[in-house]
């Protein structure tokens, strides 16, 4: 009990009797809880950001605000290492893979939604079951596939960004086809029929009438595919040997694996730079992304 209560007993009771005040106290408690839960959640990230700006090279410093903030770590990762090159490689791979996968998913889902044909159900189910097979375990086969293809078409061979993109295309048709088909199903058939009456072809109906309506979900699928491939490091790790072909995740992982303790600050700086875009996009698009995730789409 505080002194104030003792000196003016009526004041506290008056305060507590008001429903409005009681709600305020509950709210303050809730906010405190939220702050506590958030700090547990965000602590590791705060430490990372802190050590990115810190001049000390280890993660052992317990102070969250670095004593002598410096940009040396950013200089190490960006100037002395191939950060921009790795980022560029990642952007090339992820952009190509997500745009192609998004288009193939949309075309496939349209067909499943609008046409009835022999083997339709089996094909829909087959797509799902094939993606259940853990792709990690087909690595031996994928490795020799790229090796063989590379002898005839070097741009899709081992140690090539093209080869990496090709492998991501294998998973282009996934549960996202189902998600997308659901959205097409929710678009009334009357739209198609009105187009048909005007003499539009299937392609015109798809492209001019339906695609604009499903564009938001196509964007979500592309964004999730983009970050799924952007965050992948295992496939690049197994298929890419040259450091100048590294993707960002592989580059940062190798950076920390090669010289673990000494380069922590630089790794933290790289992690901060490598995450900024993705975190921003997720926060801006959070409603749509959560919607997509709820419907069964996956983040890699």
């Amino acid at each position: 009990m505080s002194n104030a209560t003792v000196q003016a007993p009526g004041a506290w009771q008056l305060f507590w009797q008001s429903k409005k005040n009681r709600r305020r106290v509950a709210l303050a408690a809730k906010l405190l809880f939220a702050i506590a839960a958030l700090s547990i959640t965000l602590l590791p990230i705060m430490f990372t950001v802190s050590s990115a700006f810190s001049s000390s090279q280890s993660l052992s410093s317990t102070s969250l605000i670095p004593e002598n903030p410096t940009l040396d770590n950013f200089r190490t990762i960006v100037v002395e290492n191939d950060f921009w090159l790795w980022l560029r490689n990642s952007l090339v791979v992820s952009t190509t893979a997500s745009v192609l996968a998004g288009l193939m998913t949309t075309l496939t889902a349209y067909s499943f939604s609008r046409f009835r044909f022999h083997g339709r159900n089996e094909l829909l189910l087959g797509i799902l079951i094939i993606q259940v097979f853990p792709s990690l375990l087909t690595m031996v086969a994928l490795f020799s596939l790229l090796q063989q293809l590379g002898q005839y078409a070097p741009f899709v061979g081992l140690n090539q960004l093209g080869g990496l993109i090709l492998l991501y295309m294998g998973g282009a048709l996934s549960i996202n086809v189902w998600l997308m088909k659901g959205f097409f199903d929710s678009l009334p058939r009357e739209i198609d029929e009105s187009g048909m009456i005007d003499g539009a072809s299937h392609w015109q109906i798809f492209w001019k009438l339906l695609f604009p309506l499903v564009r938001p979900i196509v964007v979500v699928i592309m964004v999730l595919t983009f970050f799924g491939t952007f965050g992948d490091w295992l496939l690049p790790r197994l298929m890419i040997q040259d450091t100048d072909k590294y993707t960002l995740m592989l580059g940062l992982q190798q950076f920390i694996a090669n010289d673990y303790g000494n380069n922590w600050g630089a790794f933290a700086a790289g992690a901060v730079l490598g995450s900024v875009v993705q975190v921003t996009v997720f926060i801006v698009l959070q409603e749509q992304i959560v919607g997509g995730l709820t419907a069964g789409s996956v983040k890699g």
Partner: peptide, 28 residues
Amino acid sequence: SLFIIPFAIPSVLTILIWRGLLNPLTGV
């Protein structure tokens, strides 16, 4: 939005960060 942050960072990075934070000798 704040809760979405750990989820939005590539997990490869956050796992490596945890590896550093939990290092018995040097991790905070």
